[in-house]
Design a protein around this nucleic acid. Structure first.
Lengths: 340, 340
DNA sequence: TACATTTATGCAAAGGTTTGCATAAGTTAT
DNA sequence: ATAACTTATGCAAACCTTTGCATAAATGTA
């Protein structure tokens, strides 16, 4: 059933002219007569001619395609970044191939590999939690394919990076809790391999230190994932404590929401007895009761900026210094935390 | 800085053998001597040779790529479908190009166009709310590129389709409300151009009819979008009614959540005074208090099935009848609605 | 020795496009 | 009438790969 798409030579044959003439006619080349042009254009339309980008890319050594690799697309966080990227690169005439690494290092390498084979012009990647060396990235860069890392740092690897200041976001959140009178502040932390988990934990600890609040190991509760289920699990554990915390700073909104659920079900008042703060400021978070205080991240802008940097590399900007951009998050105070 | 990737001829030149020999050596062709093979393989590795898929695709008239077009990727709904698709097509050796139409017909056509130019092998598309003719789809199919429609119907267009029985989902929800004693049931409906909105509205109306409950026009509240803000808006309007409804069936969870927020803030009891049911069963929905009753859709399976159908077309299945698959949704009862 | 067979390799075409250079016809100026 | 120029078109190479067919050398057989 597969008819072959029309080609230049199809048009040329039917019109008894050469392929080059057809090509030039379609590009409105000045050396082609008007009459020929119109004949060609008419037939091209009739045959539904579409230039074969494969041939073109092969010729130009350029696909006008960029590849983006994220751990997952299901989250609001990554899909919003992608939106930023998409908007910018499309306007610049590039296509975007979105791939999911599913937090697997192997898969990340595999994707990098297949996308190299299809000759994407550049890469945007947010490394997996398993990614601890950068051989595969370096190989790519050495071969001249530009690459920009975003959101998650890959320490020791020198490249263009666009990150969010997770440390600062966490610090802001915890400092706010302290200023509103909380002293026994728990932190539900994410996978320790992840740079963002470490940075947020660090921010939490430094905020405590600044106000001379002793760190209590039991109040730092590690969980394996980012979904509400893990928040439920952590909160249930917390309920067994001899003394409840008076605040919870969760690694993200999903966890915070799970924790809030357990707390409210137990009849504990938020924020009177326990304040809760999340991270990411997801769209639904403000519709819980009480609405969730959260650290907002400039997701869309992170996408835009990452894309802009990549595009400038593609435009042949002599790779000066690697750019290192650190975007500032912002604490959005709502009713799940006490007032100042 | 862009070094050209190694090619077969690079290897051939350095080894003083022909390109064909190199190609065959890398494919472990029996007619090539072991010694040659190992020399070739070694050098290929050293040069980091990667076959150029552009050349290959050009030769084979096949890119092993399929394109999927969704209105947006930010929602849990579409991103989960994409996951289903991704998992299946990757296993089958295909790449996936994800594009967003942003509910714009023009953009949909544009995407179809550029993806045709890069010669994707097949399409998966969930049409925009503006898509009311199928010329562009038909042109594609005529040219022999298979296409599967999913989630949103495009009536009058005969093609392979994988849909969810929205009518049935709505009917189930409303029937449940009636059986639990609700009589004054409001429906917050989505954009009327969208097949899913119409079908859900229809299910709502037919359920009322079955139980001889008169339709009250004021109780059908149309909104323009799917985010909680619209739910807030609709619920606020509802608050002005001389008599409150005793149940709300919302077009989706986002709307339901926004409505619940307003209702709870107003001190009205859910579900004692007002039951609320949403649609989509998003991950966060069960963590609201009360947890939201919602119509679950087999999103991942819809992705799988759509992809499976497309792949079978690509495998050269003689296009028999167009397949029309209607998946069944399921009402997940939680505490935002009364017990039976 | 002559012929058949095996083993290893190379040639060239095909896939679709662009573009520098060559060519052909037609026009203008001398 | 000839040179010089304009105008319109075509040739062929390049991008990279696969593969049917041809070739060459080496080995085996009668």
């Amino acid at each position: 059933m597969k008819k072959n798409p029309a080609t230049l030579s199809d048009i040329a044959r039917k019109l008894n002219i050469s392929i080059s003439t057809v090509s030039r006619a379609l590009h409105d080349h000045p050396a082609i007569s008007q009459s020929t042009k119109s004949r060609v254009i008419k037939l091209a339309e009739k045959l539904n001619y579409q230039p074969n980008m494969l041939a073109l890319s092969l010729l130009n050594k350029k696909t006008n395609t960029i590849g983006i690799i994220v751990p997952e697309i299901t989250s609001y966080f990554f899909s919003s970044i992608i939106n930023g990227v998409q908007d910018l690169v499309n306007d610049a005439g590039y296509r975007l191939i979105i791939s999911q690494s599913e937090e697997s290092f192997e898969k990340e390498k595999e994707i990098l590999d297949t996308l190299s084979k299809v000759r994407v012009d550049g890469f945007l990647v947010s490394p997996t939690s398993e990614t601890h060396n950068a051989h595969h990235f370096n190989k790519l860069i050495e071969s001249g394919t530009p690459l920009v890392i975003f959101d998650r740092d890959c320490t020791g690897f020198n490249a263009d990076k666009v990150l969010v200041d997770d440390y600062d976001g966490a610090f802001q959140a915890v400092e706010y809790l302290i200023k509103t009178g909380c002293r026994r502040i728990a932190h539900i932390t994410g996978p320790s391999k992840l740079s963002i988990s470490r940075h947020r934990l660090h921010g939490y600890l430094d905020a405590l230190k600044k106000y001379d609040i002793p760190k209590v190991d039991d109040l730092i509760i590690p969980v394996e994932g980012f979904t509400p289920e893990f928040g439920v699990e952590a909160a249930k554990a917390m309920m067994e404590f001899p003394e409840l915390p008076d605040a919870i700073f969760a690694i993200n909104d999903g966890i915070a929401i799970g924790a809030m659920y357990v707390i409210k079900e137990a009849g504990i008042q938020i924020p009177n007895q326990v304040s809760v703060i999340g991270f990411d400021d997801e769209p639904h978070s403000s519709y819980f009761i009480p609405p969730l205080t959260s650290v907002w991240q400039p997701v869309y802008d992170m996408g835009l900026l990452s894309a802009r940097i990549l595009l400038s590399k593609l435009k042949g900007k002599k790779s000066s210094e690697a750019r290192y951009e650190m975007l500032k998050p912002e604490l959005i105070v709502r009713a799940s935390s006490r007032e100042l």
